Simulated assay, not measured.
Amino acid sequence: MMSTRENFISAAAPALLAVLFPFYWITFLGQSFNGFEEAFKQDLLTLNWRDLLFVLIGALEVFVYISLSKHLKCYLNANAARLLLLMMASLVTLFHLTVVFDIYLALTQYNSLSENISFAAMILSLGSLGIFTLVAAVFSIVSLVNKQLPPLLKAFCVLMLLMCILQMTVVLAFTNVFLFPAALLILSIYFVKEREELEVI
């Protein structure tokens, strides 16, 4: 079982991410009315505060999945879910590593190689996001069939599964800007409740 301090940090991380995530992606997509691809290309050519926020969001999301994976040690038949969470954390890391392309393109003059770098960054971004969606869907299903998990964790998994389905439709993927923060707040509440239980014990 996690300590009170660990539960407090685990509760704070998803709560902070629930605020930063929609703020970043709404401002990101607001750069262009031509969709994700055009906004992505525009962002690659500039280096600003959004890049730092992008890295922070990635670090927080990785921390949330790793913390949840550690917490699932408390439950029976959760090894598969824990492994899937670690895979999700790895894919999030890969997705956010695209900031390296951003830094390179922003600090060098645009040339013939820049177009290839932008394309590689796009492939890495979309590829890791697509695989993450599949892994997250499997994690959600595996967790939902585990009778040992408490209701709040299952509510988190229900929202995660819904997000994965919407992500696969592409057209409705933008709704995840609001669904993901809702899932994170549920997870934060779960960790707060767990912390209170530890204090009672």
Rank of each mutant, 00 (worst) to 15 (best):
F139P: 02
L29N: 12
S188C: 06
L161S: 05
L159F: 13
L187T: 09
F21T: 09
T27S: 11
T133M: 01
A81R: 02
A78D: 08
V100G: 04
L85G: 07
S114Y: 04
F119K: 13
L185K: 04
L126S: 10
F178L: 14
A59S: 15
L144A: 03
L152C: 07
L84R: 05
E61D: 14
L159S: 10
K70H: 10
K154P: 07
T27P: 02
V145Q: 08
D43N: 13
L52T: 15
W25T: 09
I9D: 00
A136R: 03
S118R: 14
L86H: 10
A59D: 09
F40K: 02
Q42H: 09
F63I: 09
A120P: 07
L68S: 08
N146I: 11
T46P: 02
V99N: 09
P151Q: 05
L85A: 06
Y190S: 06
S128G: 07
R195K: 14
I9G: 01
F63E: 03
K147S: 15
T175L: 12
S118T: 13
L72D: 04
N34A: 15
G130R: 01
F156W: 11
L179K: 04
L184G: 11
I117S: 10
V145K: 12
S3I: 08
F180P: 08
K41W: 05
E115F: 14
C157K: 01
G130M: 02
C157N: 12
L185I: 15
L198C: 13
L124Q: 11
L185R: 03
L129T: 12
L124D: 01
S69Q: 02
I189H: 00
L86K: 10
F180Y: 13
K154A: 07
V135I: 13
L162C: 11
F95D: 09
I9H: 01
G30E: 04
I186F: 02
N79I: 12
G58C: 11
A183L: 04
V62Y: 01
A59P: 12
Q42T: 09
V177F: 07
G35H: 07
T108I: 05
A12L: 15
A39N: 07
V200E: 12
F180I: 13
A78S: 15
Q167T: 13
L60P: 09
T93E: 00
V145C: 05
F23R: 04
L53R: 09
Q31T: 15
L166P: 08
T4G: 01
S10L: 06
A137N: 02
V192H: 00
L124R: 00
L107N: 12
F156R: 06
L179C: 08
L149M: 08
F180H: 09
L198G: 03
S67P: 08
Q167S: 15
N116M: 11
A120T: 14
V100Q: 02
L84D: 04
